[in-house]
Design a protein around this nucleic acid. Structure first.
Length: 503
RNA sequence: GGGCGCGUAGCUCAAUUGGCAGAGCAAGUGACUCUUAAUCACUAGGUUGCAGGUUCGAUUCCUGCCGCGCUCACCA
């Protein structure tokens, strides 16, 4: 018999012993007086004298350590990212509860009643008068000193990662704070949160390959959305002047440290503003998010100190000139010259060439949070042209740590021009660009009813979370990143074999 | 999809040129009524990711496959 089977059998037997003492192996509702974080906050700095007269508490948590010493012993409970020591002495807890203490395993979930005191070494602890059993662990916990290091196991069994590695919990708490901060700020500016279709008959709003699924009753293929954009703007047509959505997008593309097939975007649309207005708003939003998430404006990422207190602004052409390395730095005139652009890129149109050169030359250098504005029309089928240079559009992207964090533009609200843009995209698709936009006639119909001048923006929540939590991989900020399926575990078979057979 | 790397006990890691697969934690038994990586004694635990090959002999060398990581391509 393997060790794991032996362990499983031991634990199942132990359940019988615990039940024989009169404790259910899997308890029910437990009334507590304090969470462990609250005890830490309220009593963490109290001296032994200040804990007189005794403070009675009823707490619960998962057992992280157990130190048994004959007729007494210690253990650490963990709850809400906080540990609290309990002291179980036979004289104080009584015969039956002390027997229970002797049957506990690391990982079990228990309740403890008693009073707070300081041990001789000064650690705040609960002097236990009564123990409760709440849930049994059948499998052994990761090692207490090194935690759980195996990356694959950490992603596949995130619950173990959260139990064994306290800093992981903090990453996801911060992620939650980031999202809450956006919501709070947008609500304060009069935005309302909406939910638009995840399953779409025509996908759009971004350049990407979609996932395809099928609806049986209607017998139609549907696409998991690559962006909510076109639906949100239909809502602006409908008079929802300030709307936002924080939700998943799905893109059927490769995985990397910066790409997960499903990822979370904030998109918001504000009528009667333009991309200049959104630049100001973006700077305000990011500044406050950084404060809400980290307590400050500066954050250390990959050896750089990033300051979210300001967003430097530069045009795409300025960025190329500024970050050009090596000989023959181009001039502003070069970057307006179609021949120069096509000579310096393998792309087929001057605008695509400009964007490609920017991504190659400047994007990796954009370490400090920055706004890059004015994009070529070819790469921006939904943005409004610049009046003085129709080949360019009123669009900007937000960069930090060499990553694209956000994308915003003055929305194109002229249905005839939008139809021409879709035609342009169809031509690109005919040339083999699989990611070029589809024609969306229903969207053109919506614009044909008149959409107010509008600014719209998307911010990648995962990447922003990476930066604000110092995470190197997007998988570290997504609780359950996509992995290949694991294959059969055999646990059901083992449990079935042991069911009712334990002594 | 390409390139590079990794896979050994439940967890964290060793194993000399190809020569008896080991340790710590966790687990079991015993001792211990203020320990905190508790301590002490003893015990058990392995299809070395999977399948082949080379060899007297493979954790080690070779081939294929599976999984993961990094990276390039694609993308946000």
């Amino acid at each position: 018999m393997s060790l794991e089977d032996e362990l499983l059998e031991q634990r199942l037997n132990r359940i019988r012993e615990i039940e024989a003492l009169g404790f259910p192996a899997y308890g029910r509702r437990f009334e507590f007086t304090h969470t462990l974080p609250r005890i830490a906050a309220e009593y963490g700095s109290k001296t032994a004298e200040e804990l007189e007269p005794p403070v009675s508490v009823r707490v619960s948590g998962r057992l992280e350590t157990i130190r048994r010493m004959g007729k007494a012993g210690f253990a650490h409970l963990s709850q809400g990212g906080t540990r609290l020591q309990i002291y179980v002495k036979k004289d104080a807890a009584g015969e039956r509860d002390f027997q229970l203490y002797q049957l506990l395993d690391i990982g079990d979930i228990v309740g403890a009643e008693g009073y707070l005191f300081r041990t001789r070494t000064g650690e705040l602890s609960v002097h236990v008068t009564s123990l409760h059993f709440l849930a049994k662990t059948l499998l052994s916990m990761p090692e207490k000193w090194h935690g759980l290091e195996d990356v694959e196991t950490r992603y596949r069994q995130r619950y173990l990662d959260l139990i064994a590695n306290p800093e992981v919990r903090q990453v996801f708490v911060t992620r939650s704070r980031i999202i809450a901060s956006f919501r709070r700020q947008l609500e304060a500016h009069g935005f309302i949160e909406v939910e638009t279709p995840m399953m779409q008959p025509v996908y759009g709003g971004a350049t990407a390959r979609p996932f395809i699924t099928h609806h049986n009753a209607l017998d139609i293929d549907l696409y998991l959305r690559i962006a909510p954009e076109l639906y949100l703007k239909r809502l602006v047509v409908g008079g929802l002047d300030r709307v936002y959505e924080i939700n998943r997008n799905f893109r059927n593309e490769g995985l990397s440290t910066q790409h997960n097939p499903e990822f979370t975007m904030l998109e918001f649309y504000q009528a009667y503003t333009d991309y200049r207005g959104l630049m100001d708003f973006s700077a305000e939003l990011l500044r406050q998010v950084a404060i809400d998430a980290t307590g400050g404006l500066e954050v250390e990422y990959e050896g750089n100190r990033l300051n979210f207190g300001r967003l430097e602004r530069m045009s795409m052409r300025e960025a190329i000139i500024r970050f050009w390395s090596g000989e023959s730095r181009p001039s502003m005139d070069d970057l307006r010259d179609p021949d120069w652009l096509l000579r310096h890129s393998s792309r087929s149109s001057p605008g695509e060439a400009l964007a490609e050169i920017f991504e190659r030359v400047a994007e990796p250098c954009l370490i400090q949070p920055a706004i890059v504005y004015d994009y070529p029309v070819e790469t921006s089928p939904l943005s409004k042209n610049k009046p003085e240079e129709p080949a360019m559009v009123e669009r900007f992207e937000i960069y930090a740590a060499g990553m694209e964090l956000g994308n915003a533009y003055t929305e194109l609200n002229d249905p005839q021009e939008q139809r021409r843009r879709f035609d342009m995209q169809l031509a690109m698709r005919a040339r083999g660009d699989e990611e070029a936009h589809q024609m969306d006639e229903d969207y053109i119909r919506a614009l044909s009813y008149g959409m107010p001048p509008t600014g719209g923006e998307g911010i990648g929540i995962d990447r922003l979370t990476m930066i604000l939590t110092g995470s190197k991989s997007i998988r570290d900020v997504i609780l359950f990143p996509l992995l290949r399926p694991e294959g059969p575990l055999g646990l059901a078979d083992r449990l079935r074999a042991l069911d009712g057979r334990e002594r």
